[in-house]
């Protein structure tokens, strides 16, 4: 028991891991919940992801103190996701179905623009524009 407490203390004293947890654990849990649609599974993934981060060399842990890098690291730890339109609320509510599909395919499923273009029968250039519009709308909504 004493050994476990000492180990915990060590982790709490790892400032980089602790800083990532303090700043991003809520965002990461929200992100994972949107992906797996199950709070308990999302929490399990959160535990797995932090244990994977703890295995990295200190320099790489420091680099993950950035939401986008952490998000992309997270996607690499998860099995491939299918984009499912499920009427997400919050900042998603401002998007049309097409905008939501494109944004979700990129943000949650890590699909390339070429793959999305093929799926929705549009040109890549159009998909890029839809992504930009979706991003601007969500950004505008999240600024309030």
């Amino acid at each position: 028991m004493l050994e476990l407490e000492q180990e915990r203390k060590k982790i709490r004293e790892n400032p980089d891991l602790q800083a990532i947890y303090n700043r991003y654990s809520g965002m990461l849990l929200g992100y994972l919940t949107e992906i797996v649609k199950d709070n308990r599974k999302a929490e399990d993934h959160l535990v797995n992801i932090f244990s994977e981060i703890s295995k990295l060399p200190p320099q790489q842990i420091q680099q993950l103190f950035n939401w986008n890098r952490l998000r992309r690291f997270t996607l690499l730890q998860l099995p491939p996701q299918n984009t499912i339109l499920s009427g997400r609320g919050g900042v998603h509510a401002v998007l049309s179905n097409e905008q939501q599909y494109v944004f979700d395919s990129v943000y949650y499923s890590n699909l390339s623009l070429a793959e999305i273009a093929e799926r929705i029968g549009q040109r890549e250039e159009t998909v890029r524009k839809i992504l930009k519009e979706a991003f601007n709308l969500m950004k505008g909504k999240s600024e309030y």
């Binding site: 654990s25 965002m27 959160l46 986008n68 950004k139």
Partner: peptide, 15 residues
């Protein structure tokens, strides 16, 4: 990148 973080903050869930 900063905007992405702001969007993520809006969808955050307290562990």
């Amino acid at each position: 990148e900063a905007d992405l973080e702001m969007i993520a903050q809006h969808m955050a869930i307290m562990p």
